[in-house]
Nucleic acid binder design. Structure first.
Lengths: 206, 206
DNA sequence: CTGTGTGAAGGCTTTCACAGCC
DNA sequence: GGCTGTGAAAGCCTTCACACAG
């Protein structure tokens, strides 16, 4: 849909706009200006207009943007138009918490299964979800056409597990392990590194 | 210590270098070149040298950088030279998991207490840590001189709790709630938004 | 000769300023 | 008059090229 390649940072902001739009929609607002929407998303109006311009002429001059139409456009761009299945690898503390954290569903993602090298270990917590052995991964991913994986395994095995994921056909990984994953072209990795975020904050406090 | 203001993105990379250095130190390596260290951190050699140059002449031409000296410099810059106390607000699924996640301590951070509007609710999980009522926050923060907070409360109350944190003297917040927090100058916020990370990945898979 | 430190060049994003449409 | 869409300018960050020190 986008004419040109959209900058990575801009794609990130699309999600912020999408969030803000959802709130507006809930309040039955029909039209919104770049000024108002950008404020809700925490960015500058011109930046928002530039970002949206990647998708063509979406707004009406003198009026603003149609909330429902813009929502639709962003949903399709972000691929949240339909529910995306996600697998989670590593059912430790963090992994279990993410499974139980229902915040994803509202945004169009569903964790459909958890995997662990030792499925027994995780069984003590009621996850409401099967914890399967790693051997079951390949068939599961293929059958359910899963493209997204959340990786919450120890750093020492992260690269190894990542290789497996790629082999199974996973196309995108949300990585919580403090490691730089090596993946082939065509596979995308986003890193969430909590220790680094804390260190970063630590730098800015005097 | 830094001569000039260091770009935010560069500060982030300092943590990557620090990680890589720790591994080298464990292997009793004494000196490392920008080429080798940058590869371990997943960046380009020139970038690493530029980043380190903010701290003055750290390396030896023709040789490289002293692992121990560089480690020391980065520890001081990042403020991880001594153990930093951190409070966590919101003892739900995610909050509890972070408390039990011991990955921070190695990096110089210790969650010293958890707070929740309803401390009873959280008590069923053994956190190895007291869960205190919000009323106890101010005195605790003041007494222990806590500057860092992790915020894992529902989005609906995040801004409100954030205001309280700021009033108590917290200087930096690691925010997991999907909200743009408004904070006064001098307070830093880093956002970790899992739904947005997933959406971002979702955009890049065809 | 090896490998750092750094001015200059290049590339990417953000912001400005304003033309154009409702 | 109000507000979007967009070329141009500015700002920021990364990369290059090379001088210089060990």
């Amino acid at each position: 849909m986008p004419k040109l390649e959209i900058p990575r940072k801009a794609v990130y902001r699309l999600s912020l706009y999408y969030r803000a739009l959802q709130r507006l929609k809930a309040n039955a607002v029909e039209t919104v200006s770049s000024a108002a929407l950008s404020k809700a998303a925490g960015v500058k109006p011109t930046q928002l207009r530039k970002d949206l311009a990647y998708f063509g002429q979406l707004g009406t001059r003198g009026l603003g943007y149609s909330v429902s139409h813009l929502t639709q456009t962003l949903m399709e761009a972000l691929g949240t138009a339909r529910l995306q299945p996600v697998v989670l690898i590593g059912a430790g503390h963090l992994g279990s918490a993410l499974v139980r954290y229902r915040g994803f569903e509202k945004e169009g993602f569903e964790i459909v299964a958890a995997f662990d090298a030792d499925p027994e270990r995780a069984q003590d917590v009621a996850l409401g979800l099967p914890v399967l052995p790693m051997e079951a991964l390949r068939d599961f991913v293929r059958e359910r056409q899963v493209k997204l994986a959340i990786l919450t395994v120890p750093a020492t095995v992260a690269q190894e597990v990542s290789n497996e994921l790629v082999q199974c056909g996973i196309q995108a990984i949300l990585n919580f392990a403090p490691t730089i994953l090596q993946v082939p072209d065509g596979v995308v990795v986003n890193n969430v590194d909590l220790a680094i975020e804390l260190e970063n904050l630590s730098y800015f406090i005097r």
